[in-house]
Design a protein around this nucleic acid. Structure first.
Lengths: 356, 356
DNA sequence: CACGGGCCGACAATCGGTTGCCAAAACTAT
DNA sequence: ATAGTTTTGGCAACCGATTGTCGGCCCGTG
């Protein structure tokens, strides 16, 4: 008894301690926890009871050595998460817990190098990695994917699993919405050049405006911040269009304040649509935005990852060749930053060649 | 040669593979990396070169088993991080990397139970834990601290290391600022009841107002969101004071919009001060706020943790008895949400018993 | 030339589980 | 009662590092 007190006092008990206390072999204790049906119910009950009494908790790092499974999932996000990723993380976390995994979040710093460092640090310790808004080139991502199951978010890759919002369809909805409001000339406020999403959105913007026979302009690249959006307003003022679609809500919100500073009113003079629906209740003007199903995005990423982890178990060490991206629907949320085009078409400076 | 190809192909090389390739014992390879001077320079160089060629990377979980050191630090934050924690995390991350550690962030869900679960999952895998804005009762924190070095943020504890902003002094600066502007009646917009910080701030508020002979009111508890802050404006309107200090900037920003909706102008009619300085450029009105040195807070937490980890190494398993909280200075940042008290004192409904 | 001391590398135990294989025990069927 | 099958628990070999201990080698000095 004194002996057991001492043991429990110094370090936490191991399966060997439990085994000795129960008069069974350590392997039996191990199986009691890891292989449910394998041990006689009575024996298992007794072991469980004693283990609980002794305060036994299985040492996850010891377990990870032979099985190379840590029940940890890593999600790497650019620098520190903004509203967008917050929602994604929420969904991912729920899905991870549901699957018996723990999700840890690491921020990637601001450079590709810092991100690579973060990934390298984490990869040996986790069972899978979700790369969200990665700054890494495709080749680096492939390297990571070769070592651990990997899923990329909002970025299409042919040889690494990916989950993304159908922003092309979101863009279609946005452009059609503006068209229905009689806007015939649209400007796209572009995001950072390095952003994969931005390229995607701009491409869709061109496709849709062309399809509907609209005039399309583009301003940018613009950093994804309110300040940069605000600054972009003056560039825009030199040659205005009645409809504007921004790379994301941060830019859109800043842009709207920039316009109001210039005396241009939203939505009276200009209709503005953002992306990602992250600005709800952010500024005074409720912003029309293309909403991505953020938590679903995260959840889906985790589920895709889990499938890969399960598949990697038996023989195949990696790359199942080509994989098709999972595409989740976007939805336009109409608020009060969009309105029918005003009839009068002078008033604003440089309103230029409007088609009457 | 074909043999080595196969080996490197299937799984990543181990020290044994490197040792065989070099014709030395595995222990020598191990020491080459962990105990610099212990191995002959030539031998070490050769081993390092071969290891690099083979792409050897030390398996951190295997290393963690005998040493029980994972070089991982966990920071647990309530639900998903807002602007406040984003800055704290940034500072903590930098400090962790500087010390050769990796910081992982886990969100605690919304309940104490979820937080406990998160902590329990993480504790066996990390070398130390930082609890930020924890919802846990002191007793649970003590339990965690008994298992791993632990530091709590913005919460004073006598037997667990803590790092916190000197919000009492921040409150003093805020109240003195308002006094200097001739405000004689102040309202405190209280945050969530469970919040340790809120209790602290309210207490300081009372102390300071009393010291300066001001009238003090309190409204709340209010959820730390803009929406809740906005809603609080109508309660406030029933009995206004010319000066207001809010639990944090979210509440303050919402409160200001709520006031403007009611036709009360800031800072003309009411001066408002927030806490944490997280609303920079958030709304149209630059908010006067009590700024905490957020990144320093995170960095200091990590450094405190590292000291504990180092101390825990030799003999002492835990609790060094009583520890004094580390207090970091707060600073009032004056912007345009505060102004001298207006002379006229009717106009607003229920402006009540003003003294003069 | 012999002896003491440093330096260096190897052996083997250990961290705490997991799991393939085997044998004893219990049960079923003939 | 015997042979055949299924449970069930134990033995021991891993997983990939770390580290205490020991013996061999080389050097210097008496």
């Amino acid at each position: 008894m004194a002996d057991e007190q001492d043991a429990s006092n110094s370090t936490s008990p191991t399966i060997y301690d439990v085994a000795r206390a129960c008069g069974v072999a350590a392997s039996t204790v191990s199986r009691t926890f890891s292989r449910p049906g394998r041990v006689n119910v009575e024996t298992a009950d007794r072991i469980r009871r004693v283990a609980a009494e002794m305060g036994y908790r299985t040492n996850t790092v010891a377990r990870a050595l032979p099985t190379s499974q840590t029940a940890l999932l890593a999600m790497v996000v650019p620098t520190v998460p903004d509203r967008f990723f917050i929602e994604v993380i929420r969904g991912a976390k729920a899905a991870a817990i549901a699957a018996g995994y723990t999700l840890v979040v690491a921020d990637a710093g601001l450079s590709a190098d810092a991100e690579r460092a973060a990934v390298n640090r984490l990869i040996p310790v986790v069972d899978g990695v979700i790369l969200a808004g990665s700054l890494l080139p495709d080749s680096s991502i492939r390297v990571a994917a070769k070592q651990r199951p990997t899923v990329v978010l909002n970025r299409a890759m042919t040889d690494v699993a990916s989950v993304l919002t159908d922003s092309a369809d979101g863009m279609r909805q946005a452009v059609e919405h503006l068209t229905a409001l009689d806007h015939r000339e649209l400007t796209y406020l572009a995001g950072p050049e390095a952003s994969w999403s931005d390229g995607m959105r701009w491409r869709s913007f061109k496709v849709e405006t062309q399809r509907l026979g609209l005039r399309a302009r583009r301003i940018g690249p613009i950093a994804p911040t309110q300040a940069a959006g605000m600054a972009a307003a003056s560039t825009f003022a030199e040659q205005m269009t009645s409809g504007v679609i921004a790379f994301n809500d941060f830019i859109a919100v800043g842009f709207v304040s920039g316009l109001s500073r210039l005396g241009v009113r939203v939505p009276d003079d200009v209709s503005v649509i953002g992306f990602d629906n992250t600005a709800a209740g952010f500024s005074n003007l409720p912003l029309t935005s293309i909403a991505a199903p953020l938590p679903h995005l995260g959840g889906q990423a985790v589920r895709t990852l889990m499938r890969q982890i399960a598949a990697a178990r038996p023989g195949r060490p990696d790359a199942p060749g080509a994989v098709r991206p999972t595409r989740l629907p976007a939805q336009l949320v109409v608020r009060s930053s969009t309105a029918p085009r005003a009839r009068r078409d002078s008033n604003a400076p440089g309103s230029g060649e409007r088609a009457a």
